[in-house]
Every structure is written in structure tokens, then in C-alpha cells.
């Protein structure tokens, strides 16, 4: 550690400095650690609870596992097995995936096409259209629920996956177009013009140049949209209504919270499983999440 040729003469000041450093930074470390522990508490409690026996779960809080005597035997994996085996929950996870994947892919595809047109094509009304689309960011989605639901009822779309896909696609669209248009607009002009001079059609430029080069922006939009749809409760609640066959995890968990008692062991394990996918998506694509966030993410 000490590069000096004569360790003795150097060791003392170094040690002193290290001690000094420890003492000056200690308060900072303690504060950071304290807040961090506090912030971990709710989810840590959920994790611990999810491994406890159903009876114990009902009788005492998760923090009691730390009071002696400590028995490792009180933990088990049964709750997870029950959740995965129970029909409602397994179906709910499947539903969440069925809802989330198309509701992420559809807006990406549609928004990228539109963003390219708005960034690189010349046509009357381009500027106005872009301003209007971005302006729709201001509309709170809560305002649109009733008229959309009315149309869905007449078309038979309420309680169907298609209805939820369409709604999420629309609600995510202004932010997606805004983010992608701004990114695609910064791509090198020479590249696109050169391709055009070579006779490439718009479609070819789009698939060969625009999409590959826009991967970072597409990824940030994808992370946002995925997390948003996966965690959504309101849209599912309104458009899927009471139809349990198509209910996503959030809705099923919420109903379990409602009827207190019996199913707390399913609730904790289910809640934890529902966290795993967003956490994986987030930590895998963290970089893009931060970029998208800085591009200003306000939606719904």
C-alpha cells in the first residue's frame, strides 16, 4: 500500500491522515447508512415476510424474527410455491406479461415511425403536428378515462387486452414521440442524405439507418413504458374492470389487500415476485433509464 522506499518515516503521517479522514467522513457515512437502512425497511420487511409461515405472518410482524431465540426453521419457501401454484396469481403474472409486452412494443414501433417523419421529412403542417403531439403531454389521462370507456363499451373493447394495449399505446405516445423525435433529429444529416442520393426509399432509410442508430433512445423509452405499464393500476382498473380472467398482478394484489386476513402469505410472496421483473429490467437498462429521465419524463 505504501509506495515509499522507507515505510517507517511515512507510516505515521499516513496513519494519522487516514484516521483523520475516517473521523471527518464518519458522520457522513453514518447519515448515509441510516437513511439507506430506513429506505430499505419497507421492502426488506416484505421480503422477510414472504418467507414466513402463514400462521406466524398473521400473528406477528416481520420484525419479530429478529427477537431471540432466532430459529431458521421458521422460514420456508412454501408461500412462493403456493403463489405459483394458485390459479389466480399464476394467471395474473401471465396477464401482466400479455399486457406489458405488446403495450411496450406497439408504442415503440408507432412512435419511431412518427418521430422519423417529424424529424426528417418535409411536409406541410409538420411543425404544427409536433407541437400538438407534445402538447398532449399536458392532458392528464384521468380526463380521458370516461370518454374512452364509453367507446370501449360500445365497441366491446372493455375488459379485453386489445383495449388496454391501445390505451397504454396512446398514453405513452406523446412522451415517446417527443423523446425519439429529439434524438432522431440529432442524427448526422450527411448519412441520411447520402442514403437518399443513393436512391434509398424512406422505408429503407428508416429500417437501415434510423432504427439501428436510435437504439439508445428507443431503449430509454422502452424502459419507461415497460415499467409504467407493468406497475400500472389505474388503467387496468378502469378498462379491465371486474374481469378477473384478464386482471394483471397489480389488480389481483390490490384485491388481496382488500380482503384482509387469509391470504397475506400469498400477498407478500406475490408482491415480491411482481417486483423481480421491473428490478431486472431496471438494472439491466439503468443507463438508458437515466437518459430517458433526463429527456424529461412526464406522462399520464
Amino acid at each position: 500500500m505504501i509506495p515509499s522506499p522507507d515505510p517507517r518515516s511515512r507510516r505515521q503521517p499516513t496513519l494519522f491522515r487516514r484516521l483523520e479522514q475516517i473521523f471527518t467522513t464518519a458522520p457522513v457515512h453514518i447519515v448515509v447508512i441510516a437513511i439507506t437502512v430506513l429506505w430499505t425497511l419497507p421492502t426488506a420487511g416484505l421480503l422477510i415476510s414472504s418467507f414466513r409461515q402463514p400462521d406466524a405472518l398473521r400473528e406477528s410482524g416481520w420484525w419479530t424474527v429478529f427477537t431471540p431465540p432466532f430459529e431458521p426453521g421458521q422460514f420456508h419457501l412454501g408461500n412462493y410455491a403456493d403463489v405459483l401454484a394458485s390459479e389466480g396469481m399464476g394467471q395474473a403474472f401471465l396477464n401482466s406479461l400479455i399486457i406489458t409486452i405488446p403495450a411496450t412494443v406497439m408504442p415503440i414501433a408507432i412512435a419511431t415511425f412518427a418521430a422519423y417523419a417529424l424529424a426528417w421529412m418535409q411536409f406541410p403542417g409538420r411543425q404544427l403536428l409536433f407541437v400538438m403531439i407534445v402538447g398532449l403531454l399536458v392532458v392528464p389521462l384521468q380526463m380521458t378515462l370516461i370518454p374512452v370507456l364509453r367507446v370501449y363499451s360500445t365497441l366491446g373493447l372493455s375488459g379485453t387486452f386489445l383495449g388496454v394495449w391501445l390505451a397504454h399505446t396512446g398514453y405513452g405516445m406523446p412522451f415517446g414521440i417527443y423523446l425519439l423525435r429529439n434524438y432522431i433529429g440529432t442524427l448526422p444529416r450527411d448519412l441520411i442524405e447520402a442514403a437518399a442520393v443513393d436512391g434509398a426509399s424512406h422505408l429503407k432509410i428508416f429500417t437501415r439507418i434510423i432504427v439501428p442508430l436510435s437504439t439508445p433512445a428507443i431503449a430509454s423509452f422502452a424502459v419507461f413504458q415497460f415499467l409504467w405499464v407493468w406497475n400500472d393500476l389505474l388503467v387496468a382498473l378502469v378498462y379491465l374492470g371486474g374481469n378477473q380472467n384478464v386482471a394483471p398482478v397489480t389488480l389481483v394484489l390490490r384485491n388481496l389487500v382488500g380482503d384482509r386476513g387469509q391470504d397475506w402469505h400469498l400477498l407478500t410472496a406475490g408482491a415480491f415476485i411482481s417486483m423481480i421483473i421491473p428490478l431486472l429490467v431496471f438494472f439491466a437498462l439503468q443507463r438508458y433509464f437515466v437518459r430517458g429521465l433526463l429527456a424529461g419524463s412526464v406522462k399520464g
Binding site: 439507506t36 429506505w39 430499505t40 421492502t43 416484505l46 410482524g61 416481520w62 397489480t250 394484489l253 411482481s274
Partner: peptide, 20 residues
């Protein structure tokens, strides 16, 4: 510790907090 609350759904957060 700090990103987990951001990423989890409000439903899950609500369940965790009701315990507290």
C-alpha cells in the same frame, strides 16, 4: 436501496407500508 422504491409498483409499496 434507493432505486427499488422507484421501480416497484405503488400497489407493492402500499402493501409494504401498511405493515409499518
Amino acid at each position: 436501496a434507493y432505486y427499488t422504491p422507484v421501480v416497484v409498483s405503488v400497489v407493492v409499496a402500499g402493501i409494504a407500508w401498511r405493515w409499518l
